[in-house]
Every structure is written in structure tokens, then in C-alpha cells.
């Protein structure tokens, strides 16, 4: 009987890349100074993978996430997401790309304060023709009791779960999470990662997490360490830990 690591490796090998970056660079013009945020980054994220980008502030991890999500465009290089070179897309096409391919989960939740949990999810769901009901998704993230509540009436963890539900609303293949537990307490953060892992394992969602918290790497299939806008190290995690065992 093959062990888990073999299974994962086999699984990865059988999959094609969901995200592919080729020599991607991104520079920011800060006044008169040109600041390189990413330098010639090349890597692939396989379908169904749970990947964590680790790095200190200024290492380029959020820039990377924004480029993959089509929120920003690279200075050079190409980014292929599910066979589409998104660097060649127009703004309108990028909007459509984000709508169908990407689910964003932000550190500060970014929910619309005047909409209830259901309405926040519904708002995103209605952007696509065939969508699931907001109630169903909220039920999935364990918020069936809090559906009619406004963000100001929910705890941080609940707000982040609404944000996850919103990200799932259009049933995108990729979830991009930027410090998803950055403003949450330890227990709540752990619950969020459990949820993300479940979504990855049961729904096959590609989950890309950027964080500076190296403990999170223990639950990922792969950990990519960034330093000064370059990949410093890639670690394949043959035995990803159950998020329940997370400690930081």
C-alpha cells in the first residue's frame, strides 16, 4: 500500500498546473525610486494544491498574490492561470477572470458593511449566471445561524467565514488568501485554516495562502519562501499536518 507522500506526489504528477508564472517581475515606482517587488519569479501551482507563500514584510508575497488574482499586472513575464495568459487580458476580461476563476480572502475581510452575511455572499454569487444559493454556502461554512446578521454584528472569525463564503460564491477553482487569519485570534484562525483545508480536499480548490507565519506552512502541500522578491526556498511537505494541530 502506497504511503500518503507517495499518493500526494502521484496526485501532483497526474495534474496539470493551475497557475504558472514564468520569469515574472514587478517593479513599483515610488516617487523617483524604482522598487523591485518581484524578480524573475518562475513556479507552478498544481491543480488541487494547498500552497503557502512565506516571507517577511516586503518579500513580495502579497504582490505575487495580486498578480495571480489579476488585481495587478506584472512588469515583465507571463502568468498562466488555467491555460489563460492573464497578462494579455484587457481590464474587462480581467474582471471576468476574477469573477469566474478567483476567490479572494483578505486579511481585513473586506465585507460590505451595509449588507448582511447572506447579501454579501449573494452579491458575489449573482455576478455569475449559474450560482449556488448564498444560504447553502453559508451553511457550508457553518454560519447558518448568522445569515441575517450584518458584519458589525459578527465576530472576526465569523466575518472571515462570510468572506470565504463570498469567495466560494462563484465556485472558482482558485482561492487566494492574503493573511486570512492576520486579524484573528489563534483558535479562530485555526478554524479558518481547517475550513480552507476541507475546501481544498473535498472540493479540489487550489488554495494559495500568503502569510508571514511560518507555522501555517506545516499544513500546506508545499511551502515557498520568498525573500527580496525572489523564491529563496521551496519545501514539499509530504505529510501536511491537520490544521487542528496548528500552533503559533
Amino acid at each position: 500500500m502506497a504511503d500518503a507522500s507517495e499518493l500526494v506526489t502521484a496526485k501532483q504528477n497526474s495534474r496539470k498546473p493551475a497557475i504558472k508564472l514564468e520569469k515574472v517581475s514587478k517593479n513599483y515606482q515610488m516617487g523617483k525610486i524604482l522598487v523591485p517587488a518581484l524578480r524573475d519569479v518562475t513556479f507552478e501551482v498544481m491543480a488541487g494544491e494547498f500552497i503557502v507563500f512565506l516571507g517577511p514584510s516586503g518579500s513580495g508575497k502579497t504582490t505575487l498574490l495580486n498578480l495571480i488574482g489579476g488585481l495587478d499586472s506584472p512588469t515583465s513575464g507571463c502568468i498562466i492561470v488555467n491555460d489563460t495568459d492573464i497578462t494579455k487580458l484587457s481590464q474587462a476580461q480581467l474582471t471576468n477572470f476574477r469573477r469566474t476563476q478567483i476567490g479572494f480572502i483578505f486579511q481585513f475581510f473586506n465585507l460590505i458593511p451595509t449588507l448582511t452575511a447572506t447579501e454579501n455572499v449573494e452579491f458575489a454569487a449573482e455576478l455569475v449566471k449559474h450560482h449556488r444559493s448564498a444560504e447553502e454556502i453559508l451553511h457550508e461554512v457553518g454560519l447558518e445561524e448568522r445569515m441575517k446578521h450584518f458584519p458589525s454584528e459578527l465576530s472576526g472569525g465569523e466575518n472571515q467565514r462570510v468572506a470565504i463564503a463570498r469567495a466560494l460564491a462563484t465556485d472558482p477553482p482558485i482561492l487566494l488568501c492574503d493573511e486570512p487569519t492576520g486579524t484573528l485570534d489563534f483558535e479562530t484562525g485555526k478554524r479558518i485554516y481547517k475550513l480552507l483545508r476541507v475546501l481544498n480536499q473535498t472540493k479540489g480548490k487550489v488554495v494559495v495562502v500568503v502569510t508571514h507565519n511560518s507555522a501555517i506552512g506545516t499544513i500546506a502541500d508545499r511551502v515557498v519562501r520568498l525573500r527580496d522578491g525572489q523564491i529563496a526556498e521551496t519545501i514539499h511537505n509530504d505529510h501536511p499536518m491537520d490544521p487542528e494541530g496548528l500552533k503559533w
Binding site: 488574482g69 488585481l71 481590464q91 474587462a92 474582471t95 471576468n96 476574477r98 469573477r99 469566474t100 478567483i102 479572494f104 473586506n110 465585507l111 460590505i112 458593511p113 452579491f123 458575489a124 455576478l127 463570498r166 462563484t170
Partner: peptide
């Protein structure tokens, strides 16, 4: 603008 940016990020067309 933040609220509007979120809507745009999520995929709301211009």
C-alpha cells in the same frame, strides 16, 4: 472607494 474596490476585486464590471 474601499467598498467599491472590493466590488471590483470580486468581479463587478465597470
Amino acid at each position: 472607494r474601499r467598498e467599491i474596490a472590493i466590488m471590483r476585486a470580486v468581479g463587478l464590471s465597470q
